[in-house]
Nucleic acid binder design. Structure first.
Lengths: 356, 356
DNA sequence: GTGAAAGCGCTAACAA
DNA sequence: TTGTTAGCGCTTTCAC
């Protein structure tokens, strides 16, 4: 079926050792022999099996990738960056997704470990409390976290707390006082926690009262009545929503529209992630941007440094690598005049200026 | 470093054969022995290396995946479906992206072949003229195409021609006469060709004149002036655009907005792909929907049937598996009154009714 | 410059 | 029930 080095040797009339050398150290074999061997290789369409090599203890050049889902483009964007570098450097990627499920996380790690991946790039729900990561440490399997916000483990991410702080400060600077944070049903993630911390800090610093994050069902067609009530109730109606990620922001925007609220006149929206897609929305989504692709690249570089042992430089570096975030203005944030801080959507709309 | 079966055997005080049996056929070994072996396995945190197994000619349970890009969620959606089934059935996925580059396609195939994948799921630019696929056939490497529209090779896709035909017919039914098709810079793909065929057919059947597809640069911030000229020139201004995919439709929508055209009052838009994201737009994007996730699943099932040899049933089946498409109405298509088929955006807007 | 042979981790036939 | 052994595809001494 699939030709082996043996077949090539027989075909060329040499020993397998010579064929091996012809492949791995061409200069050590007689040019004429080399030519014959190469002809046989072509004739049989032979490709050396990495299994044989790997078995000999060579490097597998295999890196494992564990992501929660690809339904959220955040991870697809990271993956693009990783894939770019990996294939350029001759590594292969083995991908598994977990759908945020702990069992699948465990299964993924076991599977990849069995495959003898040289390292792992992953995003988990909560990096600080994750027992599997301790196991990885114990097993000596190298890994780098992406997006997870922890100082205890090797990770690449933005400063989620600070980024959220900056974003919410910007909302406040636009005159918003009643700002609510919305989170997906997976509010338990380390980044969601950090983002809420940043939100709370910005609020308090402005003398405002932070509220707990409001959980929103990602998959529902409409916003739940209970949620909608929070967003529209007369007196304390929020004027701005800080969504813990862009996908959530998009779902919320749709929900608000269906409830006949205008964006940003009736409600300002700020997302988090900086999805490329967000710019295509109408109005373009304001978002706290993480350099997702760059996060993927950086994670790759860190992992590879560890894998190849070029880690001397980064040994002095702290575990957590923090990449700069940025604010994308978009057009989903309206400025609010604080004097006429009316609670009626209609009334307030008149005093608001959509932001270019 | 990584413990081998030998280490376990030594630790447990048995032969490697017994350890192997303890792992692969526990019932054939003495319970007491089994217990000891298992303790050693746990103690050493041993995982059998698939390399050894695979080398013995066992199945690798490895499937290769070659996608153009993950920047287009179409592929991410397929991948979700594939990944779901693959991990449920104990297969591993090796992913490579090509960015529509022929060299990378070749490289991906070679790499995966070397890895001894049992089969390949891929999307190529043009399946009919692709020399690499002939090579796969010759090499006997099993594969299934996704999205590629060809009857010559095993593939899973929608009927792109018919789907486009249906979509354009719907535009015509809404009163549109001047309908233009836009395509990405990769207009050479088999599916783009089929879609244009469907477009042309629907136009001709309605007594209208189809135009060649207009190429649009995907990555530009604004629509190119030449393109914009096509879309706004007075007399022959199109009233509807059929975009060869949803991502393109989104880019075009943004471009139109920047050019101060309203959607759908000034211009109707129909996309192709049925991206989940499209429903979150405002207005929700009308699209010809392919069941992307289902396409991934179906491709997986077909490939696995071939890989495992359960192909008897599908031997009678034709090579190309066509899944049903559907039309998502969205709200980017306006009805046009044909009597007052005015060419001025402003004037025509008055006679148009946005479609719920 | 080339070949013979050992060994990587594992399974399976065969022996005990 | 357990052990011995050959061999999967390959690289790498070590001879020749």
């Amino acid at each position: 079926m699939i030709p082996t080095i043996k077949d090539v040797a027989a075909h060329a009339g040499f020993s397998i050792a010579t064929v091996s050398r012809a492949i791995n150290a061409p200069h050590t074999v007689n040019p004429i022999t080399l030519d014959k061997v190469r002809q046989s290789i072509d004739a049989l369409n032979f490709r050396p099996s990495p299994l044989g090599r790997q078995l000999r203890g060579e490097r597998t050049r295999l890196i494992g990738l564990i992501l929660p889902t690809l339904a959220n483009p955040v991870f697809a964007e990271c993956l693009q960056g990783i894939d770019e570098l990996a294939s350029a450097q001759g590594y292969r990627l083995m991908l598994m997704t977990t759908q945020y499920d702990a069992h699948r996380e465990r299964h993924a790690i076991e599977t990849l470990r069995e495959q003898r991946v040289e390292g792992l790039i992953l995003t988990v729900t909560d990096a600080d409390t994750h027992p599997l990561l301790d196991e990885l440490d114990r097993a000596g399997l190298l890994y780098v976290l992406m997006h997870n916000d922890t100082v205890r483990r090797p990770s690449v991410s933005v400063d989620n707390r600070l980024a959220a702080y900056d974003g919410v400060r910007s909302l406040i600077a636009h005159g918003h006082r009643r700002i609510l944070m919305l989170a997906g049903t997976l509010a338990a993630s380390d980044r969601a926690r950090q983002r809420h911390l940043g939100y709370a800090q910005a609020m308090q610093q402005a003398g405002l009262t932070p509220a707990p994050a409001l959980e929103v069902d990602f998959n529902a067609e409409e916003l739940a009545p209970s949620v909608l009530a929070h967003l529209t109730s007369g007196q304390s109606r929020p004027t701005a929503l800080f969504c813990s990620n862009d996908l959530l922001a998009m779902v919320v925007m749709r929900g608000l529209r269906r409830a006949r609220l205008r964006i940003p006149q009736d409600m300002s929206i700020l997302g988090f992630d900086g999805l490329a897609m967000g710019e295509l929305l109408s109005p373009p989504l304001a978002s706290i941007c993480a350099p997702n692709r760059e996060i993927g690249c950086a994670a790759w570089r860190r992992l590879l440094a560890r894998v190849t042992g070029d880690d001397d430089a980064s040994a002095s570096t702290s575990l957590a690598l923090t990449l700069p975030h940025s604010l994308r203005e978009g057009a989903t944030i309206a400025a609010i005049s604080n004097r006429t801080d009316s609670t009626s959507p209609r009334a307030s709309a008149a005093t608001e200026q959509p932001l270019a």
